[in-house]
Structure formats: C-alpha cells, structure tokens
Design a protein around this nucleic acid. Structure first.
Lengths: 199, 199, 199, 199
DNA sequence: CATGAATGAGCCTTCATTCAT
DNA sequence: AATGAATGAAGGCTCATTCAT
C-alpha cells in the first residue's frame, strides 16, 4: 500500500528532522529510521524538501479538522474557552514533534513561513477574531483591541508549546493542567479582583 | 581592535543565520556580509558552531542586564507589570533576529537547548516565580499555580515574539501596543468583569 | 513472438539513445518508449550495454547485405559510382539514427570502436580497395594511393552523414541530390578541366 | 596563475572525456588526472558541463584563428587548395582529441549541436561557399551546386578525421599524406581523364 | 513472461577548515 | 593579521539491476 509506505517514511523523517533539524538530517538516516533504503524515499517523495512539506501538511490537516470545534460557539463563554483550550492544546501536544520541525524551519525559511502563515495561521486568526468580536457583542468579553488580544491569546498557547519544546520540565510534565491555568489567566487575569487601580 | 572585529563578524553571522538558518548559512556568505575573507573568521572564532554560541551569548548578556529591573518589585503591581512588559518586550524585539536564530536552532539541537535552558530560562523563570509568590503574599495577585502561571505569562510574551518572527503583520507592525494589550489581558483577563460564572 | 518484442525494445532504445546519448539515456525511458515495463527489458537483453551492441549489430547486418551490390563491378565506372553512392547513401540515411548512436559511442569507447572497425569498417574498406585497384587496372581510374583514396572517398560519404547528423540543413534537406554532386566531385574533381596545372 | 590552472584542468578533462566520453567520465578522475582535488575543479568551472563547453571553446578559438588563411584567396586555385588542406588538416589533427569529445557529444546533444553549428560550422561553410563561387566566376572551378559541393569538400575532411578518430590505421599513420591525396581527388577526381562518359 | 517497487553503489557538488603567502 | 586557493569528507539524488508477485 502506497499510503502506508508514505506514512512510514514521513514518520521517520519527522523523527529525524526533530532530532537534528531539517538541514542536518540526512536522507540516509531517514531511510535507516524507516527501515528502508535511501533510494526508496525517492519513490514516494520528490526530494528531501518535499518531506518537509509533507510534514507541514500534517499540521494543515490537523488544523482543518480543528475547525469542527467552532460549533460550540454558542455555549457559555467560560466553559467554551476552557474546553477549547483543553482540546486544542491536547492536539497540539500530540503533534509537538511536527511543530518542532516546522517551527524551527519556518523561523529561518521565508518561503515556508509565508506559505504556512497564509494557509494556516491567517485563516485561524481570522476565525479567532470573529469569535472574539461576537463575544464582545454578546457582552461576554471586555472590549479591547481584538486583533492584538486574539494574537496574545494564541501567543500564550504557542509560547507554552515552545517552552515545552525547549524542554521546560514544568510545562512538559503538566501540559494538561496548563490548559486550565491558562484559561483562568486568559479569562480573569492574574490580578486579584479588586486589587488593582481599576477596582 | 579585536573586540570590534569580533562584533562585526558576529553581527554579519546573525544576519546570515537569520536569513538562511544556521546549517544552510555558509561561512563564505558570513565573510562576504562582514566584508572580510573567509579565513579571517577563524582568527576570531574556533569554528562555525562557535559563531552560533557567541550569538546565543548575546541573549545571555541581554538577560543578565535585564535583571536590574527587578529592583522595581516594590512598586504598584499593575504599573509594574505594564512597565516591565514594555521594557522587556522592547529589548526582545530589538534582538528579535538573534532570537530567530537561537530559537530555530534550539528547537532541534538538544545540547544548545539544554545549555540555554539551564543558563538563561530556568534562572529567569525562578525570579519570575519568586516575584509572583511575593505578589500573592502581598494580596496583589490571585492565588494560583505559580509555576504554571509564571510560565503562561512568559509564554504569552514568547508566543508574541514567535508570531512576530513568523511574519504576523499585526504583531510586527504594532509590537509596542501589544505590550499594553498583553498587560491588560494578563492582569484582568478577557472576560467582562461580572460576566462569568464567578460573578 | 520473441523476435518482435526484441525488435520493439531495440527500436525504442535507438530512439532514446539517439536523443540523449547512451549514458544519459535511462532504461526507464527506453521502457516507456517501448510501452513495456523496465524489468521486461532484462528478459530480452543481458543489460543496458547489450542494447547498444544489438543496435550496432543492425549496422553490421545492413553492411553485410550491402555486399550484394558488388556484383555490378563489371559495369561502366561512372554509372557504377553514381548508382553505388545513391544506393549506399540512401541506406545510410535510412539508418542515420542508428549511426548517430553508434558513432557517438564509438568515438569514446575503445572496445566498441575496435570491434566495429574489425568487423565492419576494415572488411568494407578492403573490398573498396580491391575494387579500386581493379578499376585502375582497367584504366578507368587514375593511378593514385589506393588505400588513402579509398578512405578519402568513404570519408566524403561519412562526412556528409556526420554533417547531416549535426543538423546541417543543406545536407539534411537535399540528401538525395548530395549523392549526385558527390559522385561528380569524386569522379571529375572540382577544378574546371583544363584549368589546372595539369592541363 | 588562474589561467594556467584552468588550462591544466581543461586539458585533464579533455583527456578523460576523450577516453570515457563526457557522461561516463567522473569529476573524480578529471581531478586525479589534473593532479588536484575534486573540489578545486569547482573553483575554476561552474560545473561539469562547463568543462565541456570550455573544451568546445578551444575549437571555436582554433577556428577563428583559421580565418587568417583566407588571405590567400587570390593565389592559384590548385596551390591554394593543397596548401589550405595541408594547413587546416594539420590543425585539425593536432586537436583531434578535442574533436573526439565534442563530436561524440554533439551527435547526441541537441543544445550543444545547435550552438556549435551556429557559432562555428555555419560561418565557416558560408566562407567556403563564397570562396567557391568566386573561383567559379574566375573560371577556375566547374560550375556545380555550390552549397552541396562545399559541404562535400568539407565532409571529406571531416570524414577523414572521423576515420582517424575511429582508429583507421591508414589514416592515423599517414595523415599528412592524406591531405595531398585528398586535394588531388577534390581537384581532379578519381576518374582517369578521358576515361569517362564525358570524354 | 510481465511488472514495478526496492535496492545501493556511485556521481556531482557544496562547504567548513587549513595553510602558504 | 588577513587572504583565498586548495582540500576532501559528506550529502542529495539517480539509475541499472533484481526479484517477489
């Protein structure tokens, strides 16, 4: 089965890329990790770069399926945020090694960066903004700069992922709890109610 | 002056590394960018990897100088958070290309990662936790999981940096404002006061 | 039918070899051109080199059948030369793509060269020399260096073929006429009779 | 000296290409033949194909210098033809290994073929035709199809070269004499004067 | 017989590093 | 100190050949 063999190679590639980085990784090692010969890789992928693209497509796919979650838009805001973060962060963590590869490469590869931003991040961010505006209209969320607040929220998740990928033990060991703490922070802030200037 | 020449090479290296990534960058191009010959690099740096380490040390240095800011611990919590974020994020953004290189490489280089985590992130995180605990004791901050809340806060900043590095135009164009929005979010949350279950 | 399949593969191989050269041609493309799978080639030929040898044998075969023409040795010299050139050059032009492959390869492959010279060129040249000597004895041809004159005559034909293969449009478009012009030149020379020192 | 090193590499390349053919020749062997390391080749040539082009340029250069000979156009026809052939064939034979490489490759490489035909063969052929027409006007040469007769003359030389390259011992051992025999044949033909139909 | 996926040797090319000038 | 030509190890990729189906 062609798809299975492709999958096998892709998984091996992701493992190797995650360990060495895309450029330092060798096709020889990908082959060894996949238990096949080097030439076989090229029966399933155009070239080494195509392996990276295919790795990225995994995230694309994940993201697309994540869209299903929007249905719950109508529910209670607080519950929604917590459930959404839990769900989303679980999926992200499952794919963390893919993120490791793609993030690392995107940071220093303009073409990859532009493609991923256009195809994945921007659409996602727009849905988030729309969602946010709706909540404000419903009187559930504080009026604020929607674009930046949306990005700050996403950034918190992304930042936790990066911390986890960098080996922060607290984040790595307690990823599930992090979703709860993060939703608390995003909803209510860190300040003790009534303790600030605004009180 | 030896130090100046070193600096010149290092800056060139950072530019090239940021554009192509460490592995794809060539010493030839670093030399060209620095306006010197390839051999000269090796009079100032052991090898190519040493250039990366030296780049990382720039962040180390920046971080060390950032410690001075902790003095302001005694001030009003809200003002402190906002001022701290402004200051810190400004410095981070100034060094964003250094972060680009170091982050990209750390994600896929365990040795670099461990060194940076041990030398920079962990100490910083501990200071943050300490600070946080103090604020709770003072009744300024809500009691919560200090380790995770500290990391979530740092993650928000880190995540914004990453979004900016990935080319998000909102974040890139309005980085200064982002500090304000972020401090608002971290302090008070996104939810309209009295709008949640907790009201 | 085994012979037909062999023929089919051989023709495809000649086409591909002629277009890319033997070394750059791939068995994959030969298979595609023949409308079969790569593996099938190896049921009919030992290896890729055997395809080249078989291509060369086509010329061998052609040359052997050409020998029949010598019967006409007794005829009028001038008519014979013209008829012979016409016939021979027509056959050569029909097989020009085979010559393209074999010539190109022989030039840079000593083993192939030696084999072809021994099996094809030398015997042919000897027949030509014999023929020539006979004509001199008959008083039809000028006494001259038979070995070199024979080779110069053959060279003129060979050279026209090469010019044609190199894409000379005059030669390519008017190959048939070239036989007539060539026989005129070989028989009478270019100089106006009575116009030279010998007059 | 850059030019000398280039020359050294080019000569080695020609030797190796002539022995194995361009495609089968390896850069490793060119380097070994030149007494340098493989990488050094690439300090002087863009890639392997550039070596072939540079080899071809040698012929271009030779051909251009050959143009000087046209000055002798005014002389006695017969002497001119003999002197020209002698001179030209001597130069050709000196460069025979270059011709071996270029011819072999041109036969099966359309791009190379077109370039060489346009840059070298066509201009040369036009000069030859012009020359021929002038001789006819002067009453020195028989009126005939100029385009084809020019090509047939050139073909005789080219054909002798090819025979020599293919290892014909007569041609190889007596190349100098071949020029004389060829000029005799081209001028007066093989037929015994008064022995043909035309007598 | 036919197929075509798998193989792995070998090629061209790049590039960090050295060193004579 | 600075240079940059030379080096050669290593990597991505191709392709003739094999073999299980």
């Amino acid at each position: 089965m062609v798809a299975a063999r492709r999958e096998q190679i892709l998984r091996a590639a992701t493992r190797v890329f995650a360990e060495k980085g895309f450029s330092r990784a060798t096709t020889r090692e990908v082959a060894r990790e996949a238990g096949i010969s080097e030439g076989t890789i090229y029966n399933y992928f155009e070239d080494k770069y195509a392996l990276l693209m295919a790795t990225m497509d995994v995230l694309n796919e994940t993201e697309r399926r994540a869209g299903d979650f929007e249905a719950s838009l109508a529910e209670n805001f607080e519950d929604f945020v917590e459930a959404y973060l839990h769900h989303r962060m679980a999926v992200i963590w499952d794919n963390r090694e893919v993120f490791r590869v793609v993030l690392s490469e995107m940071l220093v590869n303009a073409r990859l960066r532009e493609r991923y931003m256009r195809e994945v991040v921007e659409p996602t961010m727009e849905i988030g903004e729309e969602n946010f505006r709706e909540r404000i209209k419903q009187g559930k969320a504080r009026a604020t700069d929607v674009a930046l607040a949306t990005r700050a929220s996403a950034a918190a998740v992304l930042g936790l992922l990066v911390l986890g990928l960098l080996g922060d033990e607290e984040v790595g060991a307690r990823w599930d709890e992090a979703a709860g703490v993060l939703s608390g922070m995003l909803l209510h802030g860190l300040e003790k109610s009534g303790g600030g200037r605004h009180a």
